[in-house]
């Protein structure tokens, strides 16, 4: 009996020590956690007093990025720590002439945020949470550095 358990354990440890199998192990763990997560969805409570709340105007051509407000005046933006962002609310939205043209003629500007530079600056993302955007671009930079190194390597 003990010999059988030992043999089973050796087979298992041999299987585990092959690194190609670690992806499968992680996938099984992921499936278990995802199922647990889905089961726990009814237990997740929604807290009403949220910051970063926004009202969406579905009829606007800028949907869902329409933040309202008048250009060149201060707009009320909720920030977690308003004392750290004294300029919050001044840079609300900025449209290039091309973006303005798309917004006025089609209902699709909201889907083209990445298609043209300088289209829309999101106040929350770029003013109060600026470090996020810096780290995101660092990730892209690291990924491009690796890709170009592998591409240019002589072998």
């Amino acid at each position: 009996m003990i010999r059988l358990i030992g043999k089973g354990f050796r087979t298992f440890s041999n299987w585990m020590s092959t690194y190609e199998n670690l992806v499968a192990v992680y996938a099984v763990l992921g499936i278990i956690v995802a199922i647990c997560g889905i089961i726990m969805v009814p237990l997740i409570t929604y807290h009403e007093d949220q910051i970063y709340s926004k009202s969406i105007n579905r009829d606007s051509p800028l949907d869902p990025y329409d933040r309202g407000g008048v250009p060149f005046t201060k707009v009320d933006i909720e920030a977690q720590y308003p004392e750290n962002s004294p300029a919050a609310g001044y840079v609300t939205t900025y449209l290039t002439p091309f973006s303005w043209f798309i917004a006025n003629n089609t209902p699709f500007l909201g889907t083209t945020i990445v298609a043209h530079p300088g289209g829309i600056l999101d106040e929350i993302l770029y003013n109060t949470r600026g470090l996020d955007t810096i780290v995101e671009t660092s990730i892209l930079f690291a990924a491009f550095a690796i890709a170009s190194f592998l591409f240019r390597r002589k072998e």
Binding site: M40, I44, T45, Y46, H47, D49, Q50, I51, Q80
Partner: peptide, 24 residues
């Protein structure tokens, strides 16, 4: 989505973050 904030300062000690989020 559940707490409306990501700041650890605000969330500390409240236990508001759901268990599923911690597992993820």
């Amino acid at each position: 989505g559940s707490c409306g904030t990501l700041s650890i300062w605000e969330l500390a000690g409240l236990g508001m973050v759901p268990l599923a989020a911690k597992m993820f």
